[in-house]
Computed example of a mutant assay.
Amino acid sequence: MFGTKSKTNYANGQVLDADGFRLRLRVNARARRISLRLDNKTGEAVVTAPRPRDLSQAVEFALTRRDWILGHLEKRTVAGMFQPGMDIPYLGSQLRLTHSGDRAAARLIGGVLSAGGEGEAYHRRIERFLRKAAKDFAEAHTELYAQQLGATGVTVSLFDAKGRWGSCTPGRKAIRYSWRLIMADETVFSYVCAHEVAHLKHPDHSDRFWAEVERLFGDYRPARQWLKTHGTALFGYGA
């Protein structure tokens, strides 16, 4: 184990066994400051520094965020495949997953989402329900913002990418969303819809783009911050 006062010369790509988690070190000359994220594929915490000489400070920073890292890793581990007895987030509320006792498709009654089947069959039925709900939400809100923008003929689809919430191909008027957004707060999902619709007009992240997002959605900053703070945990569901 290493301490915060260690003078070890760390290297780009090095992986450290921290107190309860693995920490990967990265150097990115384009980074403006030290940053920390979780890698959903490896389960590692990744800390990035602008220069090699900043890695010691980056390690110290990561260690101060130990509780945050372990908390998110625990959520990622607990989530996984959908099973009866789980509580899952759903548009800002919580749903309890139960077994219907038969092979029926998933049904939502109040705050309870029930389905039949065992193991993967149960998991697929729950995921199918969530995907449909996500598609319905995305289509409705995309149409709402597209009308404000004066755009017509926009198509909506879902994807399963880890680490991305949406994508827009302006030339084809095609927008894709992560189906896991159905497990985010409703305002967050709405923000992503406005964000992607704004790309139909501005295929970049210029000041004009963000001004368009604000015109369509309002103050987007809290929703954007929610994704940065809590979004990682959602990628653990259905993994």
Rank of each mutant, 00 (worst) to 15 (best):
211 A>Q: 15
84 P>M: 11
106 A>V: 11
184 A>W: 03
193 C>H: 12
192 V>R: 02
199 H>T: 09
141 H>E: 14
184 A>I: 02
194 A>H: 12
82 F>K: 01
140 A>S: 13
108 L>Y: 09
181 L>M: 15
93 S>F: 01
139 E>D: 06
192 V>W: 07
119 G>T: 10
120 E>F: 07
142 T>R: 05
182 I>F: 04
137 F>K: 07
207 D>G: 13
160 D>F: 09
172 R>W: 00
144 L>T: 05
110 G>H: 08
193 C>R: 08
153 G>L: 03
172 R>I: 01
215 R>P: 01
176 R>N: 15
159 F>S: 11
190 S>F: 03
191 Y>V: 02
204 D>F: 12
80 G>V: 02
118 E>P: 06
83 Q>N: 06
126 I>Q: 03
85 G>A: 14
89 P>L: 05
199 H>C: 10
147 Q>R: 15
137 F>I: 00
196 E>Y: 14
127 E>T: 02
146 A>G: 06
185 D>K: 05
110 G>L: 01
122 Y>M: 07
114 S>T: 13
143 E>D: 14
148 Q>H: 13
162 K>V: 07
143 E>W: 09
100 S>G: 09
110 G>Q: 05
127 E>A: 05
132 K>N: 15
89 P>K: 01
132 K>D: 15
172 R>A: 03
126 I>F: 01
155 T>P: 00
156 V>R: 10
205 H>C: 08
139 E>M: 12
203 P>N: 13
150 G>A: 09
179 W>D: 00
208 R>F: 09
132 K>I: 08
149 L>C: 11
168 C>V: 12
108 L>M: 07
110 G>N: 03
189 F>A: 09
147 Q>I: 10
164 R>D: 05
116 G>T: 08
98 T>S: 15
180 R>M: 05
172 R>C: 00
200 L>T: 06
139 E>C: 10
97 L>R: 10
169 T>W: 04
209 F>D: 11
153 G>H: 01
137 F>L: 13
164 R>F: 09
105 A>S: 14
119 G>A: 15
